[in-house]
Write a protein that binds this DNA or RNA. Structure first.
Lengths: 213, 213
DNA sequence: GTCTATAACTCGATAGAC
DNA sequence: GTCTATCGAGTTATAGAC
């Protein structure tokens, strides 16, 4: 209920739940999913290791709450990037790949968290709705950019597009040889260009044979 | 030294080291890197949890030995796929994406293991050589398929190509919504086609302006 | 609603018997 | 070269005081 930015009561927070999600996101950005633990999040928030269990029944619920924030921001970033890219459907979709790669490289979490096994349970309804929003943002852009009239063709492009964007992010994250040390923002342009090439190639293949060249 | 298939001495193996690597690969295929542990590998091989430490100084060394096998097979599979694809440089490179995606989807390990932090140490020289073989296989195919005359252009295509292939595999592995339940071999064709589209788009962009259309 | 304390477990790694 | 036994650390999660 306290909407003031500064908590009123010393070290205890007015909204520990939100604080835990915030710290959880930062921990994920530093250590990834495998380095995530309830105890570490609690320590970051300067509370005991038992405190989180008053707000989340188990580890998975805290992780799902973090994932819900991630997927929402991801959808927002992609929508913003598409809008900033102008009117060309190819450019609009390509820009989402750049935004996705950058965000995932920054936060170290992407789809592997959104679709982790066990996250489809009904108790994670917020996450489910966030995932839906994610695809609702992406699907119209894919359909507009696809060179195929058939829905299946658009789905193939969606899959390829997401795979490419996620691949760019994970290759960077995992500290591989060639890309080691690159900053997340330096991933935007290459991922966008690769997506542009992918979309262009797909359109070319599905283009009507007598299309103007 | 015993080259007979059936071990001579009851439950104890003639070559526990090889057995541990074998079981390690199977564990990785089932549980991924995060589910990998020395204790589990030992249990799978029906030896005590201390036994592996007679053959590997630590967990990372066992993991690196598994990674070495993975990267070698990966290079072989990609080379085979390229050869089976014929003479067209685009088709040859595209085929490697299909082979990569399928193999990683089957074994649940790819570059995230090959380039994991700490694996560049001199003690993992076998792995380092395997990684080199991996890129030695891929690089000529990329150069041949690239539409760019400059080396930097080929490197960009290499990065995009690997990202796409790895993305396809990881999206499947992580049990995401749309692709859940698909079999690894059903990943070959879509990944190959996506790579073909990516390469085609890249060539189109780098094609000399007065190129014949 | 947060604390201390702890149970029950898995992990990596080592010591010493055989 | 494999065993049993164990240490110390880290984890999820719960019980009960305040």
């Amino acid at each position: 209920m306290s909407d003031s930015t500064t908590a009123r009561r010393g070290y205890h927070h007015g909204d520990l739940r939100a604080r835990l999600v915030h710290e959880g996101l930062e921990l994920l950005a530093e250590a990834g999913v495998s380095g995530f633990s309830v105890a570490k999040v609690a320590a970051r928030a300067h509370v005991s290791s038992a405190a989180p269990y008053r707000h989340f029944p188990d580890r998975e619920s805290l992780l799902a709450a973090c994932a819900t924030v991630v997927v929402g921001r991801l959808a927002d970033r992609m929508a913003e990037a598409a809008d900033a890219a102008g009117d060309d459907p190819v450019e609009r979709l390509a820009a989402t790949a750049g935004a996705y790669a950058r965000y995932v490289a920054e936060g170290r979490v992407g789809m592997e968290l959104l679709f982790a096994p066990g996250f489809h349970e009904p108790r994670f309804r917020d996450l489910h709705e966030g995932t839906r929003k994610f695809f609702d943002t992406l699907l119209p852009l894919v359909v507009a950019a696809s060179g195929s009239d058939e829905f299946a063709g658009a789905m193939d492009l969606l899959e390829a597009h997401v795979s490419l964007a996620h691949g760019y992010a994970t290759v960077l994250i995992q500290g591989s040889y060639p890309t080691a040390g690159r900053r997340p923002e330096d991933l935007t342009a290459p991922a966008t260009e690769a997506a542009r090439n992918l979309i262009t190639g797909e359109r070319l293949r599905h283009a009507a044979p007598p299309a103007a060249l």
